[in-house]
Design a protein around this nucleic acid. Structure first.
Lengths: 342, 342
DNA sequence: ATGAAAGCGCTAACAT
DNA sequence: ATGTTAGCGCTTTCAT
């Protein structure tokens, strides 16, 4: 109870050696059931908890997984992507007995400083990097000894392990849906083209049109860069070309599009149909007030988090395995903004 | 470079003992500048990083702070309170060289299991508990040896250290504002009365009316429990009593109130003025679409996180200090829903 | 199946 | 100002 409980003391109380107690705790096979009982008993009675630091030092495993979120302050405030991702990761950590160390880099300076810290020995067993961006100290992490999983395909690191959705297929689904609804002039507002999500969603838009023998009209493609302001502007720029539908590469931008259309006196979906991507607007503070409800491509964000942890654990156990590429499916969520909803 | 870098090896390379290297790293005063230089040099060249596990074991300090968020899954999905809090805590951790271990309990089972884990020796230097609720294993944590800071005054633990806003004063400000705008029949939708935030905001409402010699009309007080559904219902129940203003104890509920008023064919603020609490609707996914923009009482959520860390660090350094009660101010944010905005 | 003993890499008290 | 040394509490061979 007092003066710090240790393996040695538990051993003494149970009449066995420290090594045996250790074996019991770590579920080693070769222990007499009777002895195991006795030791467990003492542990329960005393409320003994092994010292994690000592354990880590001796075993070279800490049970800590790092989640790195670099300089995406705005996104963190803007939508619920990261909260959900964190949820998924946290849950998977809980279930696998790992603990989650969260690093949010707020400035470039912090990123510099902490990157080194994060890599230090005897600290993290592995790393998950979300919101990857490049040319940064972060890249060091990918080259480090530590197992790393990236959330969202990192274009510049083909050999990195990552989990992502099938962005292209999602976009194809969205655009095909608009086509099947009879829309003729389908525009798109693209995301950042230096990110897989932006690039692949744009490609999906093109591929869907091509597959249906529709012409590609460059005037109907505007850059949104995943930013609300640009999406608003972009929507206005689109109007002279009379689109009857717009595929917007993220829900966050799609909300700006809705607003821009409303400001221009156009009705959704009557005048222009809108489909978003992410399904982030579906829940959240202001849900009840979004009008019309947004048709969108849902990403299984929570599952991505869970998968990231599972795969990372595997990578840790299996250090020289080949890189993993985990691709999860998306889902078309039909609401009212596309004109097909109830 | 290879074979694991240790203090010993760095010492050898720099021609000093391991102890000296340790001193340099830990910024001890009594080191010859020249020697310090040389050691730093070697450290930089080799890229040596101290082993955290060994350090923790020897020093009995891990540099890990735990943040516990118990079973508030819904809230985590619903608004940006936790993301902002986490931001603040994370930033303060970065600045003070601590690392943040995040525990989100998704089920009661997890809460049980992990509570024990969280308390184990050699793991966390201190704990921050957000979204406290009672009668749970969590309470053990408050009784543990570990320094703990609670976010939001925990009513059942008067001797706990916590950080919170001045909920009552915020409510007084909100209601006084409505009074000064000439409103006569001011209603309120209260939060959970088993939480300080709910209870104290309700009290502020009462105190403001009393201070202005207004009668208290029980018919104008309905329970919202911080739930959107109840707020919607509550708003409808209020209407027969013809309120000309409603003070809603949270923004999340206030959005339901806006929706209910709209559904009832009432205009805000012309027919009924509305003031919320938290300032969570101000940013977030659907901002551009909230109409009218909500007048509210802003909580400095980010600062609460920062304060929690600062105070916790102090508690860690100063274990037998008396409990801390940190109260931060709120701020009235005037927008359009109260009728005084631009 | 269990015990003895050698570290894990660091900090800190003690010597010099 | 710096070196020597004794742990920190655990895991893990190696004996037995």
């Amino acid at each position: 109870m007092d003066g710090q409980l240790t393996l040695e003391k538990i051993g003494a109380l149970a009449g066995v050696s420290r090594a045996t107690v250790s074996r019991v705790i770590n579920h080693h096979p070769n222990i007499r059931p009777e002895v195991r009982q006795r030791v467990m008993q003492v542990i329960a009675e005393t409320g003994y908890q092994p010292n994690q630091a000592a354990r880590s030092l001796a075993s070279n495993r800490t049970g800590l997984l790092g989640l790195i979120i670099p300089r995406v302050i705005q996104a963190l405030f803007t939508d619920l992507y990261y909260p959900r991702l964190i949820q998924g990761i946290s849950q998977a950590c809980n279930e696998s007995g790992q603990t989650l160390a969260l690093f949010i880099f707020h400035t470039e300076e912090e990123e510099q400083q902490l990157t080194a810290q994060v890599m230090r020995q005897g600290f993290l067993d592995g790393l998950i990097i979300a919101g990857m961006h490049f040319g940064a100290p972060l890249n060091q992490l990918l080259l480090s000894e530590k197992p790393v999983m990236v959330i969202g395909e990192p274009l510049d690191y083909p050999q990195a392990s990552f989990v992502d959705v099938d962005n292209r297929l999602g976009a194809i689904t969205a655009v095909s849906h608009l086509i099947s609804l009879g829309h003729q002039r389908i525009a798109t507002i693209t995301g950042r083209l230096d990110m897989a999500a932006g690039q692949q969603r744009r490609q999906g838009y093109l591929d869907a049109l091509t597959a249906h023998n529709r012409p590609i009209d460059e005037a109907l493609i505007v850059a949104g860069d995943f930013e609300q302001d640009k999406a608003y502007q972009g929507t206005l720029e689109l109007l002279p070309h009379q689109p009857d539908a717009i595929f917007v590469a993220s829900d966050s931008m799609a909300l700006s599009t809705l607003r821009a259309l409303a400001d221009a006196g156009l009705q959704v979906p009557r005048d222009v149909a809108v489909v978003g991507y992410d399904d982030l607007a579906s829940e959240g503070t202001a849900v009840p007030l979004i009008n019309p409800p947004l048709t969108t491509i849902r990403q299984p964000i929570h599952r991505m988090g869970v998968q990231a942890v599972a795969t990372l654990l595997d990578l840790i156990k299996n250090p020289q395995a080949p890189p993993r590429r985990v691709i999860l499916p998306t889902e078309l969520i039909i609401r009212q903004s596309c004109g097909a909803g109830p």
